[in-house]
Amino acid sequence: MMKQNLSSLSAMSLNKQSKFIYSDEELIKLFQEGDEAAYVELVNRYKDRLYNFVYYFLGDSELSEDIVQETMIKLYQKKHYYKEIAKFSTWLYTIARNLANTELRKIKRRKITYLSHMTKKETQYDIPAIQESVEQGMNNEFVMNQIEKAINNLPEHFRLIIILRDIQKLSYDDISEIVSLPLGTVKSRINRARLQLRVELKEIKEYIRS
């Protein structure tokens, strides 16, 4: 594979006609050796997966895209920090998870400040009523929104694990590495998260049935 300049690869990265047959670990090694085409291929492989993960974790599409971009920039800048002892995917997911966590903390802080500045009347007025949403559109999009809401209502530690397991389809070992928790704790959290999600999704499932 020829070493190529990043700017000359923008076209290739956009038309998505990459013919790489390399594993992620081989690609990152090539990138560490200076091959920027390998970087573009890694970006193409992971941008959507990471976007889905961050999107369900934060619930904001624009912010999620920014975080995925930041993750990719980190990958570009810190490529030499990756060591072959870990799987590339878990390493990248860990970067994205850390960035998403930082963003989530910022959002929480902003929300607290915003709510504390509002009067009681304003608070009552600004919180949208779920009933109103139900009346507005009883369609597929509404169902999806409700599922997203149900996921968002889960505590942070449950949400993260349920997204990685049930939406991203990652193995328990990979999840354990990404969240830096023992395998047993991960399994137990998935059980608890699924039980709690059952409660959250009860209403929406009844609505689907009706």
């Binding site: 976007y51 999107y55 599409s61």
Partner: peptide
């Protein structure tokens, strides 16, 4: 969902 087309 997929990222914006202009992502890259």
């Amino acid at each position: 969902s997929k990222v914006n087309k202009k992502f890259n």
